[in-house]
Simulated assay, not measured.
Amino acid sequence: MASRALKRAGVSPELCQQLQRSKIESCKELLSRSPFEVMHAAGLSYQDALEMLVSVSRIIAPSPITALELWKRHSESCFSTSLPALDKVLRGGLPCGNITEVAGPSGCGKTQFCLMLSVLATLPKELGGLDRSVIYIDTESAFSAERLVEIAQNRFRDRFCSKEKVLEMAGRVHVYRDLTCQDVLNRLERLEEIIISTGAGLIILDSVASVVRKEFDTTLPGNLIHRSNMLGKEATTLKYLAHQFNIPVVLTNQITTHIGHQDSRPAAEKDGGFVTTALGNTWSHSINTRFIVQYMAGCQRQLLVAKSPVAPFAVLNYVIQKEGIHIVENDGEDILYEGMDPSLQPIRVRTELNIDSN
């Protein structure tokens, strides 16, 4: 992809350093210059500059791939969630090289799910992990190291029975607190080098909606376009990183109220509107897989596989325990929204009817 750093495209360190003086650091910046500009910036002959442009353009051009190769890649590169029922629906787990979004109201366990995945990614491959580190971008200051350790010690008691193993796991989860849109975008633009230096096998952005919704009032002229452009840049960068390194990218998203009529609406509907995922229709097409989490009666919650290139629509009930997410038997209250636009999937929120009496 064009945003790839020049040194990742086979350009020598000496030439990279020379080009940096002319503010040319990425393949995109290089390919946007004419051969004459590159010749002067790099101190090369015209022919050498032209050859470098051709070489870089060939390297970043996407190579064709067959359906057979894609099929093999999926079967060999799924990240198990350690939830057998969910892994079965997803045909192995979270797909590497893709973006998975977990959307839902506050308190449904989105961050808990991310923390659980962080622990899993650090596990050895023989235990179902990736044996890699984690990049965790926290935009809501919701990350809890104490909760991370609690999940690890309760979900994998034998593995994390010693302090050394716990410290090793925690040391492989790299947390970045980026609290503005520009901070997040700057982080994503530098993420390629961070992935290489840390040996990361999982990227988590919790949450993609938080800073965007704070900074962009979409009722003001022009803000919706600016927000869409910002989200488009983030999605493009994350897709490139997921594909380039063949790793899973997990995002969390918030909810919003959609005004309008929707058939088969749940109890969340109110005054002609219903609760659905935030950031709109364009964003919903930027992700590959979407989970929706919502409230049920008492302490139970529900996970909907609302969008997936490999899985059918599915419903799983779960509770949040010390070990993280725990799938429970469905109680027959499943609600199906077949054929619905995933960006308009109604979501159940907490009401007086489903608050636990305790």
Rank of each mutant, 00 (worst) to 15 (best):
L94S: 00
S32H: 06
P95S: 09
L220E: 10
G260S: 08
I335K: 13
I204A: 02
P84M: 00
G128C: 12
P35I: 05
P105C: 01
A268K: 01
T236C: 08
K72E: 14
E25Y: 03
L19C: 03
H261R: 14
L148N: 08
V11R: 02
Q112I: 13
L353I: 15
T180D: 05
Q17D: 11
A209V: 12
D356K: 06
K72I: 14
L117F: 04
D131C: 12
S75A: 14
M169F: 09
T180C: 08
V102N: 03
K88A: 15
T237H: 04
T100W: 00
K163L: 15
V38S: 01
R348P: 01
L94H: 00
E189N: 12
I24K: 02
P124L: 13
Q153M: 13
K23A: 11
S32P: 01
A170Y: 06
P84C: 01
K88N: 13
I65S: 11
V184R: 03
L251H: 04
L224C: 09
Y318T: 02
N186E: 08
S22A: 15
V149L: 12
R73C: 08
S308L: 05
R147K: 14
T180H: 04
L304Q: 07
L304A: 08
S80E: 12
R157C: 09
G332S: 02
I335N: 05
F160K: 07
R73L: 14
E29F: 02
F291I: 10
T282R: 09
A49I: 00
E234I: 15
P105W: 02
I327K: 03
L238I: 11
G93L: 03
R132W: 04
F113D: 13
E193K: 10
G199R: 04
P248D: 08
E29Q: 15
L130P: 06
L15H: 02
L117D: 08
C161V: 14
K239Q: 10
L185C: 07
Q20Y: 05
N330V: 09
T236A: 13
L241E: 08
E269P: 03
K28H: 10
T81K: 01
C16T: 10
L68N: 06
L30D: 01
P312Q: 02
Q321M: 15
L205Q: 03
V319A: 06
E193H: 08
Q244Y: 13
G201S: 07
S162M: 09
H40W: 05
I247Q: 04
P84R: 00
V119R: 07
V166K: 07
N154K: 11
R58F: 13
E140Q: 11
G128H: 06
L83S: 01
F36C: 03
G232R: 05
K214E: 14
M230N: 04
I151A: 09
V173L: 05
V173D: 07
S3W: 03
L53N: 01
G273F: 01
Y136K: 11
Q345P: 00
F79P: 00
G280T: 09
M52G: 02
T111I: 08
C96I: 00
S264K: 13
S77F: 10
K28G: 13
